[in-house]
């Protein structure tokens, strides 16, 4: 330890400074390279459907049914709050039927997919990273390889397939439940009639909005499973490594969801 410290101190400043700048770039490049290789491995593992399909069904149940309550709870409150805040801002200045459009568009375009994505990044992302990280440090992944089995098709593909299939379904349910809660909140606090709410909803609704929500859900589903799978699968040794991997997985997946949310809005919504 002392030897290492003294060795570092002996390195001249003109070497240390560029090294300090270059190291993060080198680490990032290494992650990009390893992530790319993992994606290639995932594609190569797809034909081994006998391995991943039964496990994907188990994961679908865990991701879909297991997350349903928290997803509906979040979207329900989001819908109600959107309705109440819109009422506070617009009452007296615009016709009440606009409330239907505000609630529906806010939920379908933004709150449903993004809030569901962030909630699942925490719930599923943390679980995947911790599970795979623990399997890495307890040599379970090495054991699978040593048995001549492909860890990617046994462990990663089922989890990512579950995300790709279940997250869009959860987002659609979240949209529906958020809309119903928003409608109920508008009716009970602002006195809007059912006919006015439905009129406002239908007046501004475009079928593309649902497609946009679905595309976002699909992209978020890939992000919030693929990133934690990568981070957990490549976790460092020890309990600290698993802890760091879990935190990194949730933070990276959440930030990526927010960035992609903006990128998709810019790319897909006509300005």
């Amino acid at each position: 330890m002392d030897h290492t410290t003294s060795a570092t101190a002996e390195i001249p400043i003109f070497v240390r400074a560029p090294r300090a700048v270059a190291l993060p770039f080198i680490r990032s490049s290494r992650h990009v390279g390893r992530f790319g290789l993992l994606v290639v491995e995932l594609v190569r593992g797809l034909p081994e459907w006998r391995q991943w399909l039964p496990r994907a069904v188990e994961q679908c149940y865990s991701v879909g049914y297991g997350s349903l309550f928290i997803v509906l709870l979040t979207s329900g409150f989001a819908g109600a709050v959107t309705s109440l805040q819109a009422g506070y801002q617009f009452t007296g200045s615009v016709p009440l039927y606009v409330m239907g459009a505000v609630v529906t568009e806010s939920i379908i375009l933004e709150l449903g997919p993004v809030l569901t994505g962030l909630i699942l990044a925490g719930r599923i992302g943390a679980r995947y990273a911790a599970e795979l990280g623990t399997m890495r440090v307890t040599e379970q992944i090495d054991a699978l390889e040593a048995l001549g089995r492909n860890p990617v098709s046994h462990l990663l593909i089922p989890r990512i397939v579950a995300g790709v299939l279940m997250v869009p379904a959860l987002v659609m349910l979240a949209n529906l439940f958020g809309l119903l809660c928003g409608w109920w909140a508008a009716k009970s606090s602002l006195g809007i009639t059912d006919a006015d709410f439905i009129y406002g909803t239908r007046y501004f609704f475009k079928s593309f909005d649902l497609w946009y929500s679905l595309i976002k859900a699909e992209v978020f589903g890939i992000v919030l499973t693929l990133i934690p799978c990568y981070v957990g699968y490549t976790a460092d040794q020890g309990a600290e490594g698993v802890g760091k991997a879990t935190t990194a997985a949730v933070v990276t997946a959440s930030v990526t969801i927010l960035i992609l949310d903006t990128v998709l809005a810019r790319l897909l919504l006509p300005s």
Binding site: M135, T138, E139, D142, A143, L147, G148, N150
Partner: peptide
């Protein structure tokens, strides 16, 4: 390599059982 691994049994230090 996968085929070769099938001919090798590896008993890990802590068992490495799938929990």
């Amino acid at each position: 390599l996968t085929e070769l691994r099938k001919r090798i049994g590896y008993a890990f230090q802590m068992g490495a059982l799938f929990d």
